[in-house]
Design a protein around this nucleic acid. Structure first.
Lengths: 348, 348
DNA sequence: TTGTACGCGTTATCAC
DNA sequence: GTGATAACGCGTACAA
C-alpha cells in the first residue's frame, strides 16, 4: 500500500527538476555531468517503473482494430471468433479500442482481397486476419506495411519467419496427436487419412497434419502400421457415403480414420449409418461434430480453438496500442484433445 | 480514430460545467431540474463511457496482493504457480500491483493457518489461496472479511455457494472424463480407482472424482462394467509395488486404472516394472508423470492446470483493484486431456 | 543546461 | 446549486 515512485519523487530525491529526470530517463542528452550523476544515483537506489496509465492518458483517441475472417455461413468453424470480438470489446472499449469485424467468402480469393483492401483504405491502426489464400495475403501484408498498419495473422501463417505476429497451432504436432490417439484406440495397423472438401488454399494445413501423422507411425519401432490417404473434393460431394463405401470395401482392414478438417462429421455419419467399425479422430467443435462425439461415432476431436486465437490476437494488438506492450512474433497455442466429456468447457 | 466523448465534451454540449455533469453521472444530487434535463438529453444522444485510465490515475499507491499455496518441495504439482506469479508481475507491476508469494506445509493445517494469519496481519488488499484444509480455511476467510481483505480461492473450494471467488475445475466432470478415456482404451469391464497418498484434506477432491467416474459407467446402458476402489496411504507407502501386486493378483481381470492424484507415476512404475497390462489415466503434468507418459506407461493425464488457475485468480484481482472490474464468483476452467504428443504446450 | 507550465479525464473540494 | 480549480503521472514545449 506504499506509494509508487514517480518522476517527481526522483526529482526531489536528486535535487533536480522533473524535466532533468525525464531527459536522463529518455537519454535525450543536454544534461550536465553533475545532474546526471545525482539522478543515476537515485535511480540505482530505488526501482522506478513509469506508469503506463499516465502515459496513455494523453491518447484521447479511439484506436481502430479490424479483424477479417471467413463467413461462418460457409463454415461454422469461424463462429466462435465472434464471441472473441465481443469479449475484447467489453474489455477494451472503455480504453479506446474499437473493433471492426469483416468477413470474406472462403471460396473466393478475390473476396478476401477486396475486403482486405477496403479495410486498409479506412486506415485502421491494426489488422488481424485469418488468411486462407497465401498469394493474396502477401499482397495485403505489403499494403499494410506501406500504410503503417500493424498486421497480425491467426490460424493460417503467411510466412515462416513469423514477420506477421502469428497466433495459431503447430499443425505438424497436431497430426502427431491424432496419430497417438488412433494408436491408443486401435490395434490393427491400417490407418486412413481423409482430406475432405477443402480448397487448395488449405493444402498446407492438411499437408502439415498429414506429415505429422505419418511421422508418428514411422517413429514407432515395432511398426506394422500402414497409412493410406484419400482426398474427397467438392465434385464427389454429392454422394460421400457411396464413395466411402467403395473405398472401404477394397480396404476392409482399415479401422482408424483421421479426418484433417472440420468436416469430420461426414465420415462419422457414414460410419454410423453404414459401416460401424471405424475409430474416428478429427477436427473442431462444430455442432455436427459434437453431435457425433456425444453419440460415440467420433472418438476424439482436436480443438483448433479459433476463439482463443482471435482473442489472443486482438488482446496483443490492444495491449500494444494502449500500453506499448510488445507483440509476440509467434504464439503457438496448446492443442486441445476433446472427447464427449470435456467439450463443454471449451465451447464457451 | 475518432475522439472519445469526455465529461468536458458533455459539459460543453449541455452548456453546464464539468462539476454538474459529474454530479449527474454519479447521482450525487444537488442538481437543478433544468440542468439535469440538459445533461440527460446529451447523455441520451451520445454514448459516454468513463475512461478507466483517468479514474485509476489518482491511485498512486501499490496494491498488495498475496498468494498462498503449498510448498512445491512436497508436491511439484504447485511449481507452475510460480511462473504464473512471475507473469502477473510482469504484466501488472507497472500498474501498481505487488504480488507476495507465501507457501505452507501441505501436511500441516497449522502451518496453513499461521501463514495465512501472518499475511492477514500485513493487511494486503487481496489474498488468493489454495486452501487444502477446510476448517482452517473458514477461519481465514472470516479473518479476511473482518479486515476487508478481498479473498479468492483456487484449486480447492471452501464453500459451495461460491462466496469466495473460486477458480478451479469441475471435479465430478473430471472423473467422468477419466472414465470415458479408460472406456475407450479398454474392452474388458473391470476398472480400478486408486486413491494414493493424500491426506484427509483432499478427501472431497478425490470423492468428487470417484463419483463422476462411477456415474459415467452407471449411465452406460450396455453396462457390464465393474468399478472397484482402493486407497493407499502413507503408512503403506514403503512398498507400493508389493501392495499393488497383491491386489492385482486377486483381481486379475482389471486392466484399467484411474489414479485420482498426481501420484499417478507410482502405479505407472509398478505397471512398467511388474505388471505390464494396465491402461492408466491419472492427474497432472508433474515430471515423473510426464516421463511415464512419454514411455507409454501412462496413457492419459488430466491437467488441473494450477498455473492457469493461479494466473486467472491473480488477473481477476488485479483488474478489480486497478479498474474496478467485477470478480467472477466462480470460474470453471476447461479440463485438459493430455497425451504424449500434446503435453509440451501445456507445460509453459 | 535547466526548470516550469500545461494537457490528458476524472474526481474532490471550495468558493460563490 | 453551481462552476471553477487542483491533483494524479507523464511527456513535451518553451522560457530562462
Amino acid at each position: 500500500m506504499m506509494k509508487k515512485y514517480t518522476i517527481k519523487d526522483i526529482a526531489e530525491l536528486a535535487g533536480v527538476s522533473k524535466g532533468t529526470v525525464d531527459r536522463v530517463l529518455h537519454k535525450r542528452g543536454k544534461v550536465s555531468d553533475s545532474a546526471l550523476k545525482k539522478v543515476n544515483k537515485v535511480l540505482e537506489e530505488i526501482e522506478y517503473k513509469p506508469n503506463p496509465i499516465a502515459k496513455s492518458l494523453k491518447n484521447n483517441k479511439v484506436y481502430k482494430v479490424c479483424i477479417l475472417f471467413p463467413q461462418s455461413t460457409q463454415d461454422s468453424f469461424w463462429t466462435p471468433c465472434i464471441s472473441a470480438v465481443e469479449e475484447i470489446e467489453n474489455n477494451y472499449q472503455a480504453f479506446g479500442i474499437a473493433i471492426e469485424q469483416h468477413r470474406y467468402d472462403s471460396n473466393s480469393p478475390s473476396s478476401f482481397l477486396d475486403q482486405a483492401n477496403s479495410i486498409i483504405s479506412t486506415k485502421p491502426n491494426a489488422l488481424l486476419m485469418a488468411p486462407l489464400f497465401y498469394k493474396e495475403a502477401q499482397e495485403v501484408k505489403k499494403n499494410c506495411l506501406e500504410k503503417e498498419i500493424i498486421i497480425s495473422t491467426f490460424n493460417n501463417m503467411i510466412d515462416k519467419n513469423s514477420l506477421s505476429n502469428y497466433i495459431g497451432q503447430d499443425l505438424f504436432q497436431s497430426g502427431r496427436i491424432a496419430a497417438k490417439l488412433l494408436d491408443s484406440l486401435t490395434n490393427s495397423g491400417h490407418m486412413l487419412i481423409v482430406h475432405i472438401d477443402e480448397q487448395v488454399q488449405n493444402a498446407t494445413h492438411m499437408q502439415e497434419k498429414e506429415k505429422g501423422f505419418k511421422k508418428y507411425f514411422e517413429e514407432k519401432k515395432e511398426s506394422h502400421y500402414k497409412v493410406s490417404t484419400i482426398s474427397i473434393n467438392k465434385e464427389q460431394a454429392t454422394n460421400y457415403a457411396a464413395h466411402l463405401q467403395q473405398y472401404f470395401n477394397s480396404n476392409s482392414d482399415i479401422n482408424g480414420v483421421f479426418v484433417t478438417t472440420s468436416k469430420t462429421y461426414i465420415v462419422a455419419k457414414f460410419n454410423k449409418e453404414n459401416y460401424k467399425k471405424l475409430k474416428i479422430v478429427g477436427y473442431d467443435l462444430v455442432e455436427k461434430n459434437i453431435d457425433y462425439l456425444q453419440q460415440g461415432s467420433i472418438d476424439f476431436l482436436i480443438n483448433q480453438n479459433p476463439k482463443k486465437q482471435a482473442f489472443q490476437g486482438l488482446s496483443n494488438l490492444a495491449e500494444h496500442l494502449l500500453f506499448g506492450k510488445e507483440i509476440p512474433k509467434a504464439m503457438l497455442l496448446p492443442i486441445d484433445i476433446i472427447n464427449s466429456e470435456n467439450y463443454k468447457e471449451y465451447l464457451e
